[in-house]
Design a binder for these strands. Structure first.
Length: 424
RNA sequence: GGAGGGAUGGCUGAGCGGUUGAAAGCGCUGGUUUCGAAAACCAGUUGGGGAGAAAUCUUCACGCGAGUUCGAAUCUCGCUCCCUCCGCCA
């Protein structure tokens, strides 16, 4: 949510933001609603003041055993007025809120303006491309041959877009997230969290998934709960409606969770194998920081995500997203894409975003500074990293001509020393 | 799922329907005192909205939402969460 004062000051800038982010929110009625609400509020406050003063008068009269019936009669009218005004104000507030909740965050000044991913800037490429003396196979072939990934049976059990990991495949998955959690907790100072996988509507609204993306979420209607699309939701909301102490900042959390996405509207696009699935695992990184530090914190967030890929020996590149590809809530975002020789593509495994105070306003997350003043924190999050595509990259990059797959060295301690995945 | 109890400021905990934004204690901050510290004493110590250049004024909030009333932390109803017991269960 944007600060209403920013909108009052420069609504044209906000309108431009809506366009640049490919949103459709209509802001035409916003300022009018806002000023109408304000004038009603003033009127209502005035009447309430009258009511408070008169109430005391009545109480004094009564304690002196004097007649107060005239004053009470007069007050009745005042009270009715207040009630009507309160109803009107509530209606205006609801209408305003429904618009405010649909206004995207304003991109940072150094974010390139662009319509779609073709305007993203590649800011660096890291790691060596491997040479193969053979044509590298895609992971769905390798997974099937080695009997470590089974898409057919997953589809039988649930449906398309789900994965069954088996044997060394399941073990490799487990090795990966344990490796990542250990790295972030032991080397990077993050506190490990294991949050609920189901969250309520307020949490989903707080981080910005709702109201916009309700169709993309799995929902339990009986309880109005949602399966988390990312650990960002429960972890960011850990501090919702709290005033943090300045000594708590920065706070770094990391969480391993499954993530659930309906992916409505993306059917048929990159769906082969586990390129795009409805349920996947991810190790998430979430930061709560002081506003003035948040862009530095974004850089260090990016670097710890990159560290994962570096240690895994994978080739990757980093993109700075343009306005059109930036998510609703983000002010700035870097994507990390890892190279997969079998699929022959770069695959997104992480998005590292600074939300500034956008989520903090929605979730009401604040801190008290050294002078005792209260401000919204800045929140950031990034994947550190998402598992399926990292798994794809490992399997495809580390494949050998004989069909076996080397286990990256850093994962071997997590694989009981296993060096090569062979058909069992 | 059934029965009962509860939800008040950073914490503990009072609170006849009418100067209670809220007693008291603890904690915290500042001051006095001290060579310094402790103790003692004094003062301060919730957040949001609005008006104002500011001082300041005003309004809202006692889990959440409705209602009764001239007036609600206090009464009524619904909901949520927490605790105890019973049932079911990984």
């Amino acid at each position: 949510m944007l600060d209403i004062n920013i909108i009052r000051d420069d609504i044209e800038k906000v309108k431009q933001t809506v366009i640049n982010k490919n949103e459709k929110t209509n802001l035409d009625s916003l300022l009018e609603l806002d000023s109408k609400r304000k004038s009603l509020l003033i009127e209502c406050d005035d009447l309430r003041n009258t009511r408070n003063i008169t109430s005391k008068k009545i109480s004094e009269l009564k304690s002196k055993k004097e007649d107060a019936s005239d004053v009470i009669k007069e007050m009745k009218g005042v009270s009715d007025n207040i009630k009507q005004l309160e109803v009107d104000i509530k209606a205006l507030t609801d209408e305003l809120d429904s618009i405010l909740l649909k206004i995207p965050n304003i991109p940072a000044s150094d974010v390139p303006v662009g319509k779609d991913e073709t305007s993203n800037e590649i800011i660096k490429e890291c790691g060596e491309k491997r040479d193969y003396s053979f044509t590298p196979l895609p992971h769905w072939d390798i997974g099937k041959t080695l009997d470590i990934l089974d898409f057919e049976r997953a589809a039988k059990i649930t449906g398309a877009g789900f994965t069954l990991y088996k044997g060394a495949g399941a073990r490799l998955e487990r090795a990966l997230y344990n490796f990542m959690l250990d790295l972030h907790t032991q080397e990077h100072g993050y506190t490990e969290i294991f949050p609920p996988y189901l969250v309520n509507r307020a949490s989903m609204t707080g981080t910005g998934q709702l109201p916009k993306l309700e169709e993309d979420m799995y929902r339990i209607p009986e309880d109005d709960l949602f399966l988390i699309p990312t650990a960002e939701v429960p972890v960011t909301n850990i501090h919702s409606n709290e005033i943090m102490s300045v000594t708590d900042l920065p706070t770094y959390y990391t969480a391993f969770t499954a993530c659930f996405r309906r992916e409505a509207g993306s059917h048929g696009k990159d769906t082969r194998g586990m390129l795009r699935v409805h349920q996947f695992n991810k190790v998430e990184l979430v930061k709560f920081v002081r506003p003035e530090t948040s862009y530095d914190e974004l850089e260090s967030l990016l670097s710890v995500s990159e560290k994962v890929l570096q240690l895994l020996g994978l080739q990757y590149r980093v993109l700075k997203l343009c306005t059109g590809d930036l998510s609703f809530a983000a002010a700035k975002c870097y994507d990390i894409e890892v190279w997969s020789p079998g699929v022959d593509k770069f695959l997104e495994v992480s998005s590292c975003s600074n939300f500034e105070d956008f989520q903090a306003r929605r979730s009401n997350i604040r801190f008290r500074d050294d002078e005792g003043k209260v401000h919204h924190v800045h929140t950031l999050n990034g994947s550190g990293v998402a598992l399926p595509r990292t798994m794809i990259a490992i399997i495809e990059n580390y494949q050998r001509e004989d069909g076996t797959v080397d286990v990256p060295e850093v994962l071997r301690p997590y694989m009981n020393g296993l060096e090569v995945i062979k058909k069992s």
